[in-house]
Design a protein around this nucleic acid. Structure first.
Length: 545
RNA sequence: GCCCCCGUAGCUCAGCAGGAUAGAGCGACGGAUUCCUAAUCCGUAGGUCACGUGUUCGAAUCACGUCGGGGGUACCA
Protein backbone atom coordinates (compact mmCIF):
# COMPACT_ATOMS: atom_id res chain seq x y z
CA UNK A 1 0.00 0.00 0.00
CA UNK A 2 1.95 2.94 -1.25
CA UNK A 3 -1.00 5.14 -2.01
CA UNK A 4 -2.37 6.70 1.10
CA UNK A 5 -6.09 6.34 0.85
CA UNK A 6 -7.01 7.64 4.25
CA UNK A 7 -8.64 10.67 2.71
CA UNK A 8 -10.90 8.37 0.71
CA UNK A 9 -11.91 6.60 3.90
CA UNK A 10 -12.71 9.86 5.60
CA UNK A 11 -14.68 11.19 2.66
CA UNK A 12 -16.76 8.08 2.29
CA UNK A 13 -17.57 8.07 6.00
CA UNK A 14 -18.65 11.69 5.81
CA UNK A 15 -20.73 11.03 2.72
CA UNK A 16 -22.43 8.26 4.61
CA UNK A 17 -23.17 10.54 7.54
CA UNK A 18 -24.56 13.18 5.22
CA UNK A 19 -27.10 10.80 3.74
CA UNK A 20 -30.58 11.90 4.56
CA UNK A 21 -29.74 15.53 4.10
CA UNK A 22 -29.94 17.34 0.82
CA UNK A 23 -26.21 17.18 0.21
CA UNK A 24 -24.42 16.17 -2.96
CA UNK A 25 -21.79 13.50 -2.40
CA UNK A 26 -19.38 15.45 -4.54
CA UNK A 27 -19.56 18.47 -2.28
CA UNK A 28 -17.86 16.55 0.51
CA UNK A 29 -14.30 17.68 -0.04
CA UNK A 30 -11.25 17.52 2.12
CA UNK A 31 -8.67 20.26 2.15
CA UNK A 32 -5.38 20.90 3.80
CA UNK A 33 -5.93 23.47 6.54
CA UNK A 34 -4.06 26.72 6.15
CA UNK A 35 -2.54 26.43 9.57
CA UNK A 36 -0.91 23.21 10.68
CA UNK A 37 -2.24 23.41 14.22
CA UNK A 38 -5.73 22.76 12.90
CA UNK A 39 -4.83 19.24 11.90
CA UNK A 40 -3.82 17.40 8.78
CA UNK A 41 -7.11 17.46 6.91
CA UNK A 42 -10.26 19.48 7.22
CA UNK A 43 -13.74 19.56 5.79
CA UNK A 44 -16.09 22.50 5.47
CA UNK A 45 -19.18 20.52 4.56
CA UNK A 46 -21.05 21.77 7.62
CA UNK A 47 -20.49 25.33 6.47
CA UNK A 48 -21.39 24.84 2.84
CA UNK A 49 -24.46 22.78 3.58
CA UNK A 50 -25.87 24.88 6.40
CA UNK A 51 -28.88 25.76 4.33
CA UNK A 52 -29.58 22.20 3.24
CA UNK A 53 -29.58 20.92 6.79
CA UNK A 54 -31.44 23.78 8.38
CA UNK A 55 -28.93 23.66 11.21
CA UNK A 56 -26.31 26.08 12.28
CA UNK A 57 -22.96 25.05 10.83
CA UNK A 58 -21.41 24.43 14.22
CA UNK A 59 -24.37 22.36 15.27
CA UNK A 60 -24.20 20.16 12.19
CA UNK A 61 -20.44 19.87 12.46
CA UNK A 62 -20.74 18.72 16.03
CA UNK A 63 -23.29 16.14 15.08
CA UNK A 64 -20.98 14.83 12.35
CA UNK A 65 -18.01 14.77 14.68
CA UNK A 66 -20.00 12.87 17.26
CA UNK A 67 -21.15 10.29 14.77
CA UNK A 68 -17.80 9.95 13.12
CA UNK A 69 -16.56 6.46 13.96
CA UNK A 70 -13.72 6.52 16.41
CA UNK A 71 -12.53 3.30 14.94
CA UNK A 72 -11.57 4.63 11.56
CA UNK A 73 -8.04 3.63 10.91
CA UNK A 74 -5.50 6.39 11.14
CA UNK A 75 -7.70 9.18 12.41
CA UNK A 76 -6.81 10.06 15.94
CA UNK A 77 -9.16 12.92 16.53
CA UNK A 78 -12.01 14.80 14.90
CA UNK A 79 -12.68 18.27 16.20
CA UNK A 80 -15.03 21.10 15.39
CA UNK A 81 -13.38 24.44 15.10
CA UNK A 82 -14.08 27.99 14.08
CA UNK A 83 -17.41 28.57 12.38
CA UNK A 84 -17.95 24.85 11.75
CA UNK A 85 -14.90 23.17 10.31
CA UNK A 86 -14.27 19.52 10.92
CA UNK A 87 -10.60 18.95 11.53
CA UNK A 88 -8.98 15.57 11.34
CA UNK A 89 -5.79 14.67 13.09
CA UNK A 90 -3.88 11.62 11.93
CA UNK A 91 -2.64 9.21 14.55
CA UNK A 92 1.08 8.75 15.15
CA UNK A 93 0.62 5.03 14.54
CA UNK A 94 -0.76 5.74 11.11
CA UNK A 95 2.08 8.12 10.30
CA UNK A 96 4.68 5.69 11.56
CA UNK A 97 3.23 2.95 9.44
CA UNK A 98 3.22 5.30 6.49
CA UNK A 99 6.93 5.94 7.00
CA UNK A 100 7.68 2.27 6.79
CA UNK A 101 5.72 1.92 3.61
CA UNK A 102 7.41 4.90 2.04
CA UNK A 103 10.86 3.72 3.07
CA UNK A 104 10.16 0.31 1.60
CA UNK A 105 8.84 1.63 -1.71
CA UNK A 106 9.38 5.35 -2.15
CA UNK A 107 8.66 5.42 -5.89
CA UNK A 108 5.08 4.42 -5.37
CA UNK A 109 4.27 6.88 -2.66
CA UNK A 110 1.95 9.47 -4.13
CA UNK A 111 1.03 7.23 -7.03
CA UNK A 112 -2.60 6.67 -7.68
CA UNK A 113 -4.97 5.20 -10.20
CA UNK A 114 -7.37 8.12 -9.99
CA UNK A 115 -6.70 8.97 -13.63
CA UNK A 116 -8.05 5.58 -14.64
CA UNK A 117 -5.98 5.58 -17.77
CA UNK A 118 -7.68 8.64 -19.20
CA UNK A 119 -5.74 9.74 -22.24
CA UNK A 120 -4.37 13.26 -22.01
CA UNK A 121 -2.16 14.84 -24.60
CA UNK A 122 0.06 17.68 -23.50
CA UNK A 123 1.32 19.84 -26.30
CA UNK A 124 3.95 22.36 -25.38
CA UNK A 125 6.92 24.39 -26.62
CA UNK A 126 5.91 23.97 -30.29
CA UNK A 127 8.25 26.80 -31.17
CA UNK A 128 8.75 27.86 -34.74
CA UNK A 129 11.68 26.00 -36.28
CA UNK A 130 13.29 29.28 -37.17
CA UNK A 131 15.66 29.84 -34.31
CA UNK A 132 16.87 28.77 -30.89
CA UNK A 133 14.42 28.25 -28.04
CA UNK A 134 13.74 31.24 -25.85
CA UNK A 135 12.83 31.47 -22.19
CA UNK A 136 9.07 31.31 -22.64
CA UNK A 137 9.59 28.00 -24.42
CA UNK A 138 11.80 27.02 -21.53
CA UNK A 139 9.08 27.78 -19.04
CA UNK A 140 6.53 25.84 -21.06
CA UNK A 141 8.97 22.96 -21.29
CA UNK A 142 9.40 22.81 -17.51
CA UNK A 143 5.71 23.08 -16.84
CA UNK A 144 4.58 20.71 -19.57
CA UNK A 145 7.12 18.06 -18.79
CA UNK A 146 6.36 18.14 -15.07
CA UNK A 147 2.62 17.98 -15.71
CA UNK A 148 3.11 14.90 -17.84
CA UNK A 149 5.19 13.27 -15.11
CA UNK A 150 2.64 14.08 -12.42
CA UNK A 151 -0.33 12.99 -14.50
CA UNK A 152 1.35 9.68 -15.25
CA UNK A 153 1.99 9.16 -11.57
CA UNK A 154 -1.68 9.76 -10.89
CA UNK A 155 -2.84 7.10 -13.26
CA UNK A 156 -3.39 9.06 -16.45
CA UNK A 157 -2.16 7.96 -19.82
CA UNK A 158 -0.35 11.24 -20.46
CA UNK A 159 1.73 11.95 -23.52
CA UNK A 160 3.80 14.87 -24.63
CA UNK A 161 3.91 16.30 -28.08
CA UNK A 162 5.77 19.00 -29.94
CA UNK A 163 3.95 20.50 -32.90
CA UNK A 164 6.42 21.40 -35.60
CA UNK A 165 5.21 24.46 -37.45
CA UNK A 166 6.70 23.54 -40.77
CA UNK A 167 3.70 24.08 -42.99
CA UNK A 168 3.26 27.78 -43.47
CA UNK A 169 5.22 30.25 -45.48
CA UNK A 170 7.57 30.91 -42.60
CA UNK A 171 9.67 28.03 -43.81
CA UNK A 172 9.94 29.78 -47.16
CA UNK A 173 10.84 32.98 -45.36
CA UNK A 174 13.42 31.11 -43.38
CA UNK A 175 14.87 29.74 -46.59
CA UNK A 176 14.89 33.17 -48.15
CA UNK A 177 16.56 34.66 -45.08
CA UNK A 178 19.30 32.06 -45.14
CA UNK A 179 19.78 32.51 -48.87
CA UNK A 180 20.26 36.21 -48.20
CA UNK A 181 22.94 35.31 -45.68
CA UNK A 182 24.66 32.99 -48.13
CA UNK A 183 24.60 35.53 -50.89
CA UNK A 184 25.34 38.32 -48.48
CA UNK A 185 22.45 40.44 -49.63
CA UNK A 186 19.72 42.18 -47.71
CA UNK A 187 17.33 40.01 -45.72
CA UNK A 188 13.86 40.03 -47.30
CA UNK A 189 10.86 41.78 -45.89
CA UNK A 190 9.49 39.96 -42.85
CA UNK A 191 12.50 37.63 -42.84
CA UNK A 192 14.52 36.48 -39.89
CA UNK A 193 17.36 38.72 -38.83
CA UNK A 194 18.87 36.68 -36.07
CA UNK A 195 22.64 36.44 -36.14
CA UNK A 196 22.37 32.72 -35.53
CA UNK A 197 21.21 32.23 -39.11
CA UNK A 198 24.69 33.14 -40.32
CA UNK A 199 25.97 30.08 -38.56
CA UNK A 200 23.24 27.89 -40.06
CA UNK A 201 23.99 29.34 -43.49
CA UNK A 202 27.61 28.32 -43.10
CA UNK A 203 26.72 24.89 -41.86
CA UNK A 204 24.33 24.40 -44.72
CA UNK A 205 26.87 25.47 -47.33
CA UNK A 206 29.41 23.10 -45.88
CA UNK A 207 26.93 20.25 -45.76
CA UNK A 208 25.66 20.85 -49.27
CA UNK A 209 29.06 21.16 -50.86
CA UNK A 210 30.23 18.01 -49.17
CA UNK A 211 27.22 15.89 -50.02
CA UNK A 212 26.49 17.30 -53.48
CA UNK A 213 30.00 18.41 -54.56
CA UNK A 214 28.39 21.52 -55.91
CA UNK A 215 27.62 25.11 -55.05
CA UNK A 216 24.25 24.93 -56.78
CA UNK A 217 22.03 25.29 -53.78
CA UNK A 218 18.30 24.55 -54.05
CA UNK A 219 16.49 27.28 -55.97
CA UNK A 220 13.33 26.92 -54.01
CA UNK A 221 13.23 28.89 -50.74
CA UNK A 222 10.85 26.31 -49.35
CA UNK A 223 13.28 23.48 -49.99
CA UNK A 224 16.20 25.42 -48.59
CA UNK A 225 14.07 26.47 -45.64
CA UNK A 226 13.21 22.88 -44.91
CA UNK A 227 16.87 21.91 -44.69
CA UNK A 228 17.52 24.76 -42.29
CA UNK A 229 14.40 24.08 -40.26
CA UNK A 230 15.46 20.48 -39.79
CA UNK A 231 18.87 21.58 -38.61
CA UNK A 232 17.26 24.00 -36.17
CA UNK A 233 14.82 21.38 -34.95
CA UNK A 234 17.73 19.05 -34.32
CA UNK A 235 19.31 21.74 -32.16
CA UNK A 236 16.06 22.36 -30.32
CA UNK A 237 15.70 18.69 -29.60
CA UNK A 238 19.24 18.53 -28.27
CA UNK A 239 18.65 21.57 -26.09
CA UNK A 240 15.45 20.10 -24.70
CA UNK A 241 17.13 16.81 -24.00
CA UNK A 242 19.76 18.67 -22.06
CA UNK A 243 16.86 20.24 -20.19
CA UNK A 244 15.59 16.72 -19.48
CA UNK A 245 12.53 17.15 -21.65
CA UNK A 246 11.79 14.38 -24.09
CA UNK A 247 8.72 14.38 -26.28
CA UNK A 248 6.75 11.29 -27.12
CA UNK A 249 6.12 12.66 -30.57
CA UNK A 250 7.28 15.48 -32.80
CA UNK A 251 4.22 16.08 -34.92
CA UNK A 252 4.77 17.82 -38.23
CA UNK A 253 2.26 20.34 -39.41
CA UNK A 254 3.32 19.49 -42.95
CA UNK A 255 1.88 16.02 -42.51
CA UNK A 256 -1.57 17.58 -42.35
CA UNK A 257 -1.32 18.88 -45.89
CA UNK A 258 -3.28 18.64 -48.01
CA UNK A 259 -5.75 16.01 -46.97
CA UNK A 260 -6.48 16.87 -43.33
CA UNK A 261 -6.39 20.59 -43.96
CA UNK A 262 -8.76 20.37 -46.90
CA UNK A 263 -10.95 18.16 -44.77
CA UNK A 264 -11.38 20.96 -42.26
CA UNK A 265 -12.40 23.40 -44.97
CA UNK A 266 -14.90 21.03 -46.48
CA UNK A 267 -16.36 20.15 -43.09
CA UNK A 268 -16.89 23.81 -42.33
CA UNK A 269 -18.34 24.28 -45.80
CA UNK A 270 -20.73 21.37 -45.30
CA UNK A 271 -21.93 22.90 -42.10
CA UNK A 272 -22.44 26.18 -43.90
CA UNK A 273 -20.02 28.00 -41.65
CA UNK A 274 -17.92 29.78 -44.23
CA UNK A 275 -18.43 32.57 -46.73
CA UNK A 276 -16.35 34.38 -49.31
CA UNK A 277 -15.54 38.04 -49.12
CA UNK A 278 -12.90 40.20 -50.82
CA UNK A 279 -11.46 37.14 -52.46
CA UNK A 280 -10.84 35.41 -49.13
CA UNK A 281 -12.68 32.63 -47.39
CA UNK A 282 -14.06 33.47 -43.95
CA UNK A 283 -15.12 31.20 -41.11
CA UNK A 284 -18.11 32.45 -39.10
CA UNK A 285 -16.10 32.40 -35.89
CA UNK A 286 -18.26 35.05 -34.26
CA UNK A 287 -21.09 32.55 -34.15
CA UNK A 288 -18.96 30.29 -31.97
CA UNK A 289 -17.70 32.70 -29.38
CA UNK A 290 -14.93 34.53 -31.20
CA UNK A 291 -14.96 38.29 -31.38
CA UNK A 292 -15.06 38.38 -35.14
CA UNK A 293 -15.12 36.17 -38.19
CA UNK A 294 -11.73 34.87 -39.29
CA UNK A 295 -10.10 34.50 -42.64
CA UNK A 296 -9.20 30.86 -43.14
CA UNK A 297 -8.05 30.99 -46.73
CA UNK A 298 -6.35 34.13 -47.93
CA UNK A 299 -6.97 35.77 -51.27
CA UNK A 300 -3.62 34.31 -52.30
CA UNK A 301 -4.95 30.84 -51.63
CA UNK A 302 -2.99 30.13 -48.45
CA UNK A 303 -4.55 28.76 -45.28
CA UNK A 304 -4.29 30.73 -42.08
CA UNK A 305 -3.17 29.05 -38.87
CA UNK A 306 -6.71 28.17 -37.74
CA UNK A 307 -7.04 25.57 -40.46
CA UNK A 308 -4.00 23.38 -39.85
CA UNK A 309 -4.41 23.89 -36.09
CA UNK A 310 -7.97 22.65 -36.29
CA UNK A 311 -6.87 19.75 -38.42
CA UNK A 312 -4.20 18.98 -35.84
CA UNK A 313 -6.72 18.92 -33.03
CA UNK A 314 -9.09 16.74 -35.00
CA UNK A 315 -6.14 14.46 -35.47
CA UNK A 316 -5.48 14.40 -31.73
CA UNK A 317 -9.09 13.51 -31.18
CA UNK A 318 -9.03 10.79 -33.80
CA UNK A 319 -6.00 9.29 -32.12
CA UNK A 320 -8.22 8.69 -29.11
CA UNK A 321 -7.16 11.41 -26.72
CA UNK A 322 -9.80 12.58 -24.30
CA UNK A 323 -8.12 15.85 -23.44
CA UNK A 324 -5.79 18.04 -25.41
CA UNK A 325 -3.91 20.36 -23.12
CA UNK A 326 -2.11 23.04 -25.03
CA UNK A 327 0.45 25.28 -23.39
CA UNK A 328 0.62 28.44 -25.43
CA UNK A 329 2.95 31.38 -25.25
CA UNK A 330 1.59 34.82 -24.43
CA UNK A 331 1.91 35.87 -28.07
CA UNK A 332 -0.59 33.20 -29.04
CA UNK A 333 -3.40 34.13 -26.77
CA UNK A 334 -5.32 35.78 -29.59
CA UNK A 335 -5.48 32.43 -31.29
CA UNK A 336 -7.20 30.61 -28.50
CA UNK A 337 -10.58 32.12 -29.19
CA UNK A 338 -10.60 31.46 -32.89
CA UNK A 339 -9.26 27.95 -32.51
CA UNK A 340 -11.80 27.23 -29.79
CA UNK A 341 -14.52 28.59 -32.06
CA UNK A 342 -13.35 26.38 -34.92
CA UNK A 343 -13.28 23.28 -32.74
CA UNK A 344 -16.73 24.13 -31.53
CA UNK A 345 -17.95 24.50 -35.10
CA UNK A 346 -16.39 21.13 -35.87
CA UNK A 347 -18.36 19.67 -32.98
CA UNK A 348 -15.49 18.65 -30.77
CA UNK A 349 -16.57 18.00 -27.18
CA UNK A 350 -16.41 21.19 -25.15
CA UNK A 351 -13.94 19.89 -22.60
CA UNK A 352 -11.58 18.32 -25.13
CA UNK A 353 -9.44 21.34 -25.88
CA UNK A 354 -7.80 22.85 -22.87
CA UNK A 355 -5.63 25.82 -23.74
CA UNK A 356 -3.34 27.12 -21.04
CA UNK A 357 -1.59 30.40 -21.43
CA UNK A 358 1.96 30.32 -20.19
CA UNK A 359 2.68 33.87 -19.24
CA UNK A 360 5.81 35.73 -20.06
CA UNK A 361 9.14 35.50 -18.31
CA UNK A 362 11.07 38.57 -17.24
CA UNK A 363 14.72 37.73 -16.88
CA UNK A 364 16.63 39.85 -14.46
CA UNK A 365 20.35 40.15 -14.05
CA UNK A 366 22.09 42.67 -11.86
CA UNK A 367 18.70 44.12 -11.00
CA UNK A 368 18.12 44.96 -14.66
CA UNK A 369 15.52 43.39 -16.85
CA UNK A 370 16.80 41.70 -19.96
CA UNK A 371 14.55 42.57 -22.85
CA UNK A 372 14.13 40.19 -25.67
CA UNK A 373 12.87 40.16 -29.18
CA UNK A 374 12.48 36.87 -30.94
CA UNK A 375 12.39 38.26 -34.44
CA UNK A 376 15.54 40.29 -34.01
CA UNK A 377 17.11 37.22 -32.46
CA UNK A 378 18.30 38.92 -29.32
CA UNK A 379 17.63 37.91 -25.75
CA UNK A 380 18.63 34.87 -23.78
CA UNK A 381 18.25 31.43 -25.28
CA UNK A 382 17.47 28.31 -23.31
CA UNK A 383 21.00 27.09 -23.98
CA UNK A 384 22.45 30.25 -22.49
CA UNK A 385 20.13 30.02 -19.52
CA UNK A 386 21.19 26.44 -18.82
CA UNK A 387 24.80 27.44 -19.24
CA UNK A 388 24.42 30.27 -16.79
CA UNK A 389 22.22 28.89 -14.01
CA UNK A 390 22.07 25.16 -14.65
CA UNK A 391 19.17 22.84 -15.39
CA UNK A 392 18.12 22.35 -11.79
CA UNK A 393 17.71 25.99 -10.91
CA UNK A 394 16.09 26.80 -14.24
CA UNK A 395 13.49 24.08 -14.00
CA UNK A 396 12.77 24.79 -10.37
CA UNK A 397 12.40 28.53 -10.91
CA UNK A 398 10.03 28.03 -13.81
CA UNK A 399 7.84 25.88 -11.60
CA UNK A 400 7.75 28.22 -8.64
CA UNK A 401 5.01 30.45 -9.95
CA UNK A 402 1.53 29.96 -11.22
CA UNK A 403 1.62 29.33 -14.97
CA UNK A 404 -0.84 32.12 -15.58
CA UNK A 405 1.28 34.68 -13.78
CA UNK A 406 4.14 36.64 -15.21
CA UNK A 407 7.37 35.27 -13.85
CA UNK A 408 10.31 37.30 -12.65
CA UNK A 409 13.39 35.16 -13.09
CA UNK A 410 16.30 36.45 -11.06
CA UNK A 411 19.34 34.94 -12.72
CA UNK A 412 21.70 36.14 -10.01
CA UNK A 413 19.61 34.38 -7.40
CA UNK A 414 19.29 31.23 -9.47
CA UNK A 415 23.05 31.03 -9.69
CA UNK A 416 23.67 31.54 -6.00
CA UNK A 417 24.56 28.55 -3.91
CA UNK A 418 23.19 30.01 -0.72
CA UNK A 419 20.15 29.77 1.46
CA UNK A 420 18.50 32.50 -0.57
CA UNK A 421 18.09 29.99 -3.34
CA UNK A 422 15.21 27.56 -2.75
CA UNK A 423 16.61 24.91 -5.08
CA UNK A 424 19.63 24.43 -2.90
CA UNK A 425 17.56 24.46 0.23
CA UNK A 426 15.71 21.39 -1.00
CA UNK A 427 18.75 19.68 -2.45
CA UNK A 428 20.68 20.30 0.72
CA UNK A 429 18.08 18.49 2.79
CA UNK A 430 18.52 15.48 0.54
CA UNK A 431 22.31 15.72 0.65
CA UNK A 432 22.23 15.82 4.43
CA UNK A 433 20.29 12.59 4.55
CA UNK A 434 22.67 10.92 2.15
CA UNK A 435 25.43 12.05 4.41
CA UNK A 436 23.76 10.50 7.45
CA UNK A 437 23.25 7.25 5.62
CA UNK A 438 26.94 7.19 4.75
CA UNK A 439 27.93 7.32 8.41
CA UNK A 440 29.49 4.17 9.77
CA UNK A 441 26.84 4.11 12.48
CA UNK A 442 24.09 3.81 9.92
CA UNK A 443 25.31 0.49 8.63
CA UNK A 444 25.56 -1.02 12.07
CA UNK A 445 21.83 -0.87 12.61
CA UNK A 446 20.35 -4.10 11.32
CA UNK A 447 16.89 -5.03 10.14
CA UNK A 448 15.55 -1.62 9.18
CA UNK A 449 12.34 -3.25 8.11
CA UNK A 450 11.74 -4.55 11.59
CA UNK A 451 12.43 -1.23 13.20
CA UNK A 452 9.93 -0.17 15.79
CA UNK A 453 8.80 3.37 14.95
CA UNK A 454 6.78 4.00 18.11
CA UNK A 455 9.52 6.24 19.38
CA UNK A 456 9.01 8.72 16.55
CA UNK A 457 6.82 11.07 18.50
CA UNK A 458 8.64 14.30 19.13
CA UNK A 459 6.96 17.40 17.68
CA UNK A 460 9.62 17.64 14.98
CA UNK A 461 9.23 14.04 13.96
CA UNK A 462 5.46 14.25 13.87
CA UNK A 463 5.65 17.44 11.87
CA UNK A 464 8.02 15.81 9.41
CA UNK A 465 5.76 12.80 8.97
CA UNK A 466 2.74 15.02 8.47
CA UNK A 467 4.60 16.96 5.83
CA UNK A 468 5.18 13.77 3.92
CA UNK A 469 1.55 12.72 4.24
CA UNK A 470 0.67 15.76 2.18
CA UNK A 471 2.53 14.55 -0.89
CA UNK A 472 -0.34 12.58 -2.49
CA UNK A 473 -2.76 15.41 -1.76
CA UNK A 474 -0.41 17.89 -3.32
CA UNK A 475 -0.19 15.81 -6.47
CA UNK A 476 -3.95 15.48 -6.58
CA UNK A 477 -4.35 19.22 -6.44
CA UNK A 478 -1.83 19.66 -9.24
CA UNK A 479 -3.92 17.36 -11.40
CA UNK A 480 -7.13 19.14 -10.49
CA UNK A 481 -5.79 22.57 -11.36
CA UNK A 482 -3.39 21.47 -14.12
CA UNK A 483 -0.95 23.73 -12.37
CA UNK A 484 2.34 22.32 -11.09
CA UNK A 485 3.63 25.06 -8.82
CA UNK A 486 2.33 23.55 -5.55
CA UNK A 487 5.09 21.00 -5.92
CA UNK A 488 7.81 23.53 -5.19
CA UNK A 489 5.96 24.74 -2.11
CA UNK A 490 5.55 21.18 -0.93
CA UNK A 491 9.24 20.40 -1.31
CA UNK A 492 10.32 23.58 0.41
CA UNK A 493 8.01 22.73 3.31
CA UNK A 494 9.26 19.18 3.54
CA UNK A 495 12.87 20.33 3.39
CA UNK A 496 12.18 22.82 6.15
CA UNK A 497 10.58 20.18 8.34
CA UNK A 498 13.60 18.02 7.83
CA UNK A 499 16.13 20.77 8.57
CA UNK A 500 14.28 21.58 11.78
CA UNK A 501 14.24 17.94 12.80
CA UNK A 502 17.89 17.61 11.92
CA UNK A 503 18.91 20.59 13.96
CA UNK A 504 17.17 19.32 17.08
CA UNK A 505 17.75 15.61 17.01
CA UNK A 506 20.59 13.29 16.27
CA UNK A 507 19.76 10.40 14.03
CA UNK A 508 22.66 8.19 14.89
CA UNK A 509 23.17 7.68 18.57
CA UNK A 510 23.94 4.98 21.10
CA UNK A 511 20.27 4.16 21.37
CA UNK A 512 19.85 1.46 18.76
CA UNK A 513 16.05 1.61 18.77
CA UNK A 514 15.87 5.35 18.17
CA UNK A 515 18.66 5.23 15.64
CA UNK A 516 16.94 2.55 13.70
CA UNK A 517 13.58 4.33 13.73
CA UNK A 518 15.09 7.64 12.70
CA UNK A 519 17.01 5.99 9.91
CA UNK A 520 13.75 4.68 8.53
CA UNK A 521 12.33 8.17 8.83
CA UNK A 522 15.32 9.61 6.98
CA UNK A 523 15.09 7.03 4.24
CA UNK A 524 11.43 7.89 3.79
CA UNK A 525 12.14 11.63 3.66
CA UNK A 526 14.91 11.11 1.15
CA UNK A 527 12.57 8.99 -0.94
CA UNK A 528 9.87 11.65 -1.05
CA UNK A 529 12.37 14.42 -1.74
CA UNK A 530 13.84 12.35 -4.52
CA UNK A 531 10.45 11.58 -5.97
CA UNK A 532 9.39 15.22 -5.86
CA UNK A 533 12.60 16.40 -7.47
CA UNK A 534 12.28 13.69 -10.09
CA UNK A 535 8.83 14.99 -11.01
CA UNK A 536 10.34 18.43 -11.50
CA UNK A 537 13.35 17.20 -13.40
CA UNK A 538 15.67 18.45 -10.69
CA UNK A 539 18.71 16.42 -9.67
CA UNK A 540 18.86 14.86 -6.24
CA UNK A 541 22.50 15.33 -5.22
CA UNK A 542 24.21 12.07 -4.40
CA UNK A 543 27.56 13.61 -3.52
CA UNK A 544 28.08 15.98 -0.62
CA UNK A 545 27.19 19.53 -1.61
C1' G B 1 -11.03 50.16 -29.25
C1' C B 2 -11.02 44.83 -28.05
C1' C B 3 -8.62 40.55 -25.45
C1' C B 4 -5.31 38.23 -21.63
C1' C B 5 -2.34 38.41 -16.99
C1' C B 6 -1.30 41.00 -12.58
C1' G B 7 -2.10 44.58 -8.15
C1' U B 8 -1.69 40.70 -0.68
C1' A B 9 4.53 42.47 4.48
C1' G B 10 10.55 46.51 2.19
C1' C B 11 11.25 42.57 -2.18
C1' U B 12 9.44 37.90 -4.75
C1' C B 13 5.04 35.42 -4.19
C1' A B 14 1.27 31.50 -1.85
C1' G B 15 -3.73 31.53 -0.39
C1' C B 16 -8.86 32.64 -4.49
C1' A B 17 -14.36 24.74 -5.79
C1' G B 18 -16.46 32.07 -0.50
C1' G B 19 -15.68 30.42 5.53
C1' A B 20 -11.22 29.58 11.27
C1' U B 21 -6.69 35.06 14.31
C1' A B 22 -4.45 36.70 6.02
C1' G B 23 0.73 32.65 5.12
C1' A B 24 5.88 31.59 3.25
C1' G B 25 10.73 32.72 1.43
C1' C B 26 14.19 36.53 0.95
C1' G B 27 15.77 41.17 3.01
C1' A B 28 16.21 43.90 8.17
C1' C B 29 17.27 43.27 13.38
C1' G B 30 18.83 39.87 17.55
C1' G B 31 20.53 34.95 18.79
C1' A B 32 22.40 29.42 18.22
C1' U B 33 27.89 25.36 16.19
C1' U B 34 32.24 19.96 21.87
C1' C B 35 28.45 15.81 18.16
C1' C B 36 25.37 12.95 11.41
C1' U B 37 27.29 19.27 6.14
C1' A B 38 25.88 26.63 9.57
C1' A B 39 24.13 25.80 1.80
C1' U B 40 21.23 24.89 8.74
C1' C B 41 18.24 26.37 13.02
C1' C B 42 15.61 29.82 16.74
C1' G B 43 13.42 34.63 17.83
C1' U B 44 11.64 39.87 16.67
C1' A B 45 9.65 43.64 13.66
C1' G B 46 6.62 44.28 9.33
C1' G B 47 -0.15 44.00 6.01
C1' U B 48 -6.54 49.66 5.15
C1' C B 49 -5.33 41.82 0.86
C1' A B 50 -5.05 48.81 -5.12
C1' C B 51 -9.93 51.45 -4.55
C1' G B 52 -15.42 51.54 -4.71
C1' U B 53 -20.18 49.20 -5.06
C1' G B 54 -22.89 44.79 -5.05
C1' U B 55 -24.19 39.32 -3.96
C1' U B 56 -23.92 36.55 0.88
C1' C B 57 -25.12 34.73 7.53
C1' G B 58 -19.82 35.40 5.85
C1' A B 59 -15.56 38.30 0.46
C1' A B 60 -8.28 38.57 -0.30
C1' U B 61 -11.46 34.80 -2.77
C1' C B 62 -17.54 35.79 -6.67
C1' A B 63 -19.93 40.08 -9.96
C1' C B 64 -19.72 45.03 -11.82
C1' G B 65 -17.00 49.50 -12.04
C1' U B 66 -12.54 52.71 -11.26
C1' C B 67 -7.30 53.40 -10.94
C1' G B 68 -2.34 51.41 -11.70
C1' G B 69 1.46 47.84 -14.02
C1' G B 70 2.65 44.18 -17.95
C1' G B 71 1.49 41.70 -22.58
C1' G B 72 -1.32 40.70 -27.03
C1' U B 73 -4.37 42.37 -30.95
C1' A B 74 -2.20 40.09 -39.56
C1' C B 75 -5.67 37.75 -45.61
C1' C B 76 2.20 35.09 -40.56
C1' A B 77 2.49 30.59 -37.69
Amino acid sequence: MADSSIEKDIVSKLVELCRGYDIEDSSVILEIPKIREYGELSCNIALTSARATGMKPVEFAERLAEQFPTSIDGVEEVTVAGPGFLNFRLSPEYLQRLMKNIAADPEHFGSSDEGQGERWLFEFVSANPTGPLNVVSARAASVGDTLVRVFKKRGYDAQSEYYVNDGGNQIRLLGASVRARIENVEIPEGGYHGEYLLEYAERFVQYWEQSHSSTNYPDDDGVLGRYIADMILGEQEKTLEGFKVKFDLWFRESSLYDEAVKGVISKLRQRNQVYSQDGALYFKASEFGDGEDRVIETSKGAYTYVVPDSAYHLNKYDRGFQRAVNLLGPDHHGHIRSLTAALRALEMPEDFFRPILVQQVNLKRGGEEIRMSKRAGVGITLDELIEEVGVDAARYFFLMRKVSSHLDFDMDLARKHTDENPVYYVQYAYARIRSILRQPGAEKVPHLRDADLDCLNTPEELDLMKSMARFPWTLASIVRSVEPHPLTNFLTDLARSFHVFYSRHRVISDDVGTTSARLVLCIAVAGVLMEGMELMGVTAPVEPM
